[in-house]
Simulated assay, not measured.
Amino acid sequence: MKHPFDIPESKKIRLIINTDAKNEADDPFAIVHALLTPRFKIKGIIGAHFGTYRTDTSMQESYDEVVKILDIMKLTDEVPVYKGAIHALPDEETPVSSEGADFIIEEAMKDDPTPLYVAFLGPITDLAAAYMKEPAIAEKLTALWIGGGSWPDGEFEFNLMNDINAANVAFKSTIPLWVIPQNAYKLMRVSLAELAVNVKPYGEIGAYLFQQLIDFNFDMVEKYIPAVIERAKKAGHEIDPESLSDWPKGEMWHLGDSPIVSLLLDDHQYGYEMKPAPRITEDMRYVHYQNKRMIRVYHYVDSTFTLQDMYAKLKLHYVS
């Protein structure tokens, strides 16, 4: 993609995006923002699964959504797309096969001095699988993960729920890891009115980003929540519909995946702390048990910086 300005080559980074793009509506905003960013040499985008709570083809749906975004932006021939794992790790010792994991290994092991970052917007399955297949990647890349419950106790969190085993593999690995947990990524609060003014008018992709969010609001109420309740019922579980009625709220959203862009533009030096990696229980709580393996845990993301950068890049690219 041709950008309206450039930066020194020495300031650029290689980036792989791993995304459950069709799970909900925020991943596409982060993908588009990254594609419009001159600092990033995007080497590939991997479609990720998002569990089976409403579909049995979640990875393929994510893959198809990435293909659709690239087609709208006329970048189909510029950015390769790969298929990630179709399901979570069965345990912490057994990798699952995916071309996404293989691609991470391939890119990490290249003789390229440009720093490599791999950003995970959903479950961290493909990173764990790649590491188990080739542990040497730990010295070749830095991983960012949008996921995990609020620090320091933990709680239910969707990306984590879809592969707790993979999170534990990554946490006990030697991979440099930046974690943006729920209490940090939910700072990315935005209203639909703000997106209607700052995103919708800018190109076919701006209109698409806005409309797919509007559509998801209705689909969640009319299709997805009933599907979740029905699947749970078939599995022998009863879900109170009222417990699912608070989200989405209707006129606002959390663009929770967008920090992958702003943190790679500026790492928010005072927005994180280095913490010993915990172990994660089946109920998604953190067990703090060691003090040697350290990870970067974010407690703050600058939403104004993030959103204004996205709005500006849409306008720069799509105002004639």
Rank of each mutant, 00 (worst) to 15 (best):
residue 34 A to T: 07
residue 126 D to A: 07
residue 9 E to R: 15
residue 236 G to H: 07
residue 252 M to T: 15
residue 287 V to M: 00
residue 50 F to S: 15
residue 171 F to W: 11
residue 317 H to Y: 12
residue 310 M to W: 05
residue 200 K to H: 06
residue 201 P to S: 04
residue 78 E to L: 11
residue 15 L to V: 08
residue 47 G to P: 12
residue 252 M to Q: 10
residue 215 D to R: 03
residue 54 R to C: 10
residue 230 E to S: 10
residue 319 V to R: 10
residue 210 F to C: 01
residue 128 A to H: 05
residue 301 V to F: 04
residue 7 I to E: 09
residue 64 D to N: 15
residue 82 Y to N: 06
residue 266 D to Q: 15
residue 204 E to Q: 00
residue 234 K to Y: 02
residue 254 H to Q: 12
residue 76 T to N: 15
residue 307 L to I: 04
residue 174 T to K: 04
residue 28 P to A: 13
residue 137 I to E: 04
residue 262 S to Y: 08
residue 100 G to M: 07
residue 95 P to C: 10
residue 186 K to L: 04
residue 119 A to E: 09
residue 30 A to W: 13
residue 213 L to Y: 02
residue 177 L to H: 01
residue 132 M to G: 03
residue 180 I to N: 00
residue 49 H to W: 10
residue 144 L to K: 02
residue 28 P to M: 13
residue 38 P to R: 14
residue 76 T to Y: 09
residue 217 N to E: 11
residue 208 Y to R: 00
residue 317 H to N: 14
residue 120 F to R: 13
residue 265 L to C: 03
residue 25 A to M: 15
residue 8 P to R: 15
residue 168 N to Y: 08
residue 291 N to L: 02
residue 246 D to M: 06
residue 158 F to Y: 04
residue 266 D to W: 13
residue 102 D to N: 13
residue 195 L to P: 01
residue 162 N to M: 02
